[in-house]
Amino acid sequence: MKIAIFIEKNPVTGKLREVTEELSAKASALVEPFGGEVVGMFAGDELPVNCTDLFSSGLNRLITFREKRLRDSHPIAIKNVIEKMILSEDPDIVLFGATSLGREVAPLISSSLKAGLTADCTHLYIDDFKDKGKILYQVRPAFGGNILATIISPDSRPVMSTVREGVMKVPEEMTKNEIRSEDFEMSLQDNWFINDLLKILPKDKKVNFNRSDIIVAGGAGVGTKENFKLLSDLADMLGAELGGSRAAVDSGYIDKSRQIGQTGAVVRPKLYIAFGISGSIQHRAGMDESSKIIAVNSDPKAPIFDISHFGIVEDMKTVIPVMMRYLKEDLNG
């Protein structure tokens, strides 16, 4: 079995996008029972500075194509290079990170190869399917995150998927593979570079609750600005957006732009975790349509519990450190 993965560089840091290492580790776990290899495909100006790390997270071989015009993201040029690599390698499976570049390049390639492409997968496994032998099962959230669908492409070669960043973990201990890298040769066409990148702006820190699956929110019960730091640490760990009640805003724990409720933002994340929020009607108006609500409050009678799915009656200062410890263990395997 051969799995090819799309190697992507973070243009801001010059390092590998984190999802790339996750893809490599996952691909290596998928091929392991059957024998085979994991091949990385890179198209860009310079290799990511920590590129050889990939050989410690499952990669067997790296094919690279470097050209200075590929400094800026030119999806059509990258598509044409990666597509040619796929054709010459003929892998069974091709994985991309579900990044903005991956989610642009992968559908372009799937369209020209007429290969099935499954979006934004959170889980991948290999199993039998009828008379097709072993195939890839691709699990992905859809329907606004309300369902998990398992998608298969039994007649497609290659089978393609984009994989969500941060869900597939890189095991701590992996064997170091020998570093094997080769240059790919092809010529680029000028008409693949018809757009000009005029300027790069740092990502503005505008709060965008819609784009996060998880919101960690705090209220007056958090007590101090220092305690609120605990919440933001937890949010960082979960990749969550931070929000708060009006009382938290009024107490100066959090910026007004992060207020949730009737006079703040209305949010519908998949998971809303409320610490020290009583659950006033005005606050609920902004969050009660979240798919899953978890509340931590020291008062068993707090109305927030009426709309929660899970809860703990406890001081949030006690709960958060324990939560972070377990999360860390879970994330590490």
Binding site: G116, L117, T118, N146, L148, T150, I151
Partner: peptide, 12 residues
């Protein structure tokens, strides 16, 4: 080429 093989709800 892609087929929905199975669907599971994650709504409570």
């Amino acid at each position: 080429p892609t087929k929905v093989h199975k669907i599971k709800s994650i709504v409570l």
